[in-house]
Amino acid sequence: MLLRERSTPEGLLVSVCDADVLGETFEDGDVSLTVEPDFYDGDEATSDEVTASLAEASVANLVGTEAVETAIAAGFVDEANVLEFEETLHAQYLRM
């Protein structure tokens, strides 16, 4: 997985994607999702590193089966709130 962290005035913004979806575009009817390298490209990370980053995040965007399943397993994302785009998954996390 690729992990990127950014500090913002509102808190830590985390983006995570599976390495094989970087730069890809996925569609679901009229809606499309492009995994933009400018936003998602980051350092290679393990599930433990992604989980630790999500624990500090105010907002997170996740794309890819492994990235989303890691967030579900760690309790950050409810599986019922996951979107499917063709053959990949997408989820967002917001800590309020």
Rank of each mutant, 00 (worst) to 15 (best):
G29W: 15
S7R: 12
L94N: 10
V77E: 03
T46K: 08
R95D: 07
A80Y: 11
L12G: 15
G11E: 03
E27S: 14
A80T: 12
E24A: 12
Y40R: 02
L13N: 14
I72S: 15
L83Y: 14
L54E: 00
V31N: 08
R6G: 10
E49L: 08
D48L: 14
E27I: 11
T46A: 06
D41A: 12
T88F: 04
D18L: 09
T46L: 15
L54S: 02
V59K: 06
F85G: 07
F39S: 08
S7I: 03
G75H: 04
A60N: 00
A73R: 05
E69I: 03
V14N: 00
V21L: 02
V35D: 00
Q92M: 06
V68W: 00
A71T: 04
G29F: 13
E36A: 10
L94W: 10
L22C: 08
L3W: 01
D41C: 02
Q92T: 10
D38A: 13
D78R: 04
S53P: 06
M96H: 13
S53T: 09
T46F: 10
N81C: 05
S15D: 06
V77R: 00
L54V: 02
T70E: 03
L62C: 13
T46P: 04
Y93F: 07
N81T: 14
G11W: 00
V14Q: 00
S32A: 11
S53G: 09
P9M: 09
T46D: 03
A45K: 01
Y40H: 05
R95H: 06
E10R: 15
A74P: 00
E79S: 09
A45P: 10
T8I: 00
F76N: 06
V50P: 01
E5T: 00
L13E: 15
V50T: 05
N61W: 04
A73K: 12
A74R: 09
E36P: 06
S47V: 08
